[in-house]
Amino acid sequence: MAHAGTLTISNLSKQYEVKGEVLPVLKDITLTINPGEFVSIVGSSGCGKSTLLRLLIGLEEDYQGEILLDGGRIVGTSLERGIVFQEHRLFPWLSVEKNIGLGLLNAKVPEEEKRRSIQEHIELVGLSGFETAYPYQLSGGMAQRVAIARALVNRPEILLLDEPFGALDALTRAHLQQELHRIWQQESITMILVTHDVEEAIYLGDKVVVMEPRPGRVRRIVPVALAHPRDRAAYEFVRIKEDVMREFIGQPAEEVIEPPLRAHDAPSDRLPSTFRFAV
């Protein structure tokens, strides 16, 4: 059922109207994403990367340009495209397996196959034994795993991830990045990850799309031709990271290395990543 599709975005623009004033959010985005590819999109807050994802999933409409999946224009949401949001968005009144089952509510497969698929995906995200647990009983990382399983259970062609690990602590985040990579290889589907974490983008992506804000545009596409598993401390890895960072802030690399905190977080309204531990 799952055939990884080709996603073609050409001359995509999107604007909001605020009190009669036109506010451009995305301008002239052109991007091709191949079947089975892992594409990371990085950018500071306000560069429209989440809006781009919402357009791809079909939650936002009314845009100029084209978004084509296997040649067909994207209209509204579809079971071919799955999404994991920053918050897990599980329904608190349903157990883990029932939450995952929601992904199959409108799938045209027999009940028995649904049950099997749910079980497989619980195993895929490493949550065997938690089938009947309720969301309040799960940690943030576990809840996000359930959200990943819920998005994958219907075997979509494309999985969109909107800063899925942004609210998790550093250790859990590193672990889930590894898990996500394994799932991507195992399921061989197209994944598009939006993040503000450059390291995460490089660790997972075949290519990193760097976006710049106001209005959101593609600044550069950086290919990541490193073999997996990637070592974050390796020279090549660090070199690409510096390369991306330079695009990001428009400053020479030397100045970026100095403060170890992620400099691109500073102007945003988010907490610095070191404080996110407490969340």
């Binding site: 949401t77 079971l79 968005r89 409108n106 219907n154």
Partner: peptide, 9 residues
């Protein structure tokens, strides 16, 4: 939005 993503009636 989750309901919309999963095409709920």
């Amino acid at each position: 939005e989750v309901a919309r993503v999963f095409k709920f009636s």
